[in-house]
């Protein structure tokens, strides 16, 4: 079981990931803005953060700063989940990110990566869904 924080602005997708992950025994919280996410990770430090690249009002530099802070505060593994993986290069996030998943992410893949993340710290990689 892992504590997972989903940072995503699409409410339907949050609900979907939450259903999937909770039904597999994980504890899930969510935030639709980075400010909310920072508060959430201080309250209950997650082991994994699933971070969307396109959040309202969040520029590339803000995302990179959030990822670095989140890593420092919680030590969580960070998974970028995005429909725009090419934005990674401009976001300058690579140093703080453990894995990049391209939407749509297949359920078995997501569950398997989450399991792997809580047992090891893999090198940064990009997985095309």
């Amino acid at each position: 079981m892992a504590r997972i924080l989903i940072v995503e602005d699409d409410l339907d997708l949050i609900e979907t990931y939450t259903d999937l992950l909770t039904m597999h025994g994980h504890e899930v919280r969510s935030a639709i803005r980075l400010g909310e996410a920072l508060k959430a990770l201080e309250e209950v430090p997650p082991q994994i953060i699933m971070l969307d690249l396109q959040l309202p009002g969040a520029r590339a530099a803000t995302l990179a700063e959030f990822a670095q802070t989140a890593k420092r505060v919680s030590g969580a593994a960070i998974i970028i989940v995005s429909g725009h993986p090419e934005m990674m290069s401009s976001a300058g996030l690579l140093d703080a990110v453990d894995l990049v998943l391209v939407k749509p992410v297949h359920n078995p893949d997501l569950l398997s990566f989450v399991d792997r993340m809580i047992t090891m710290q893999p090198a940064p990689a990009v997985h095309q869904g």
Binding site: D19, G83, K103, P104, V105
Partner: peptide, 22 residues
């Protein structure tokens, strides 16, 4: 690219339905 987000929801939800998870 933006269409990948609703598609993610549809595919994941359909998969959970198919698995009998609900």
């Amino acid at each position: 690219h933006d269409m990948r987000v609703p598609l993610n929801t549809i595919l994941s939800t359909a998969d959970m339905l198919e698995q009998g998870m609900y």
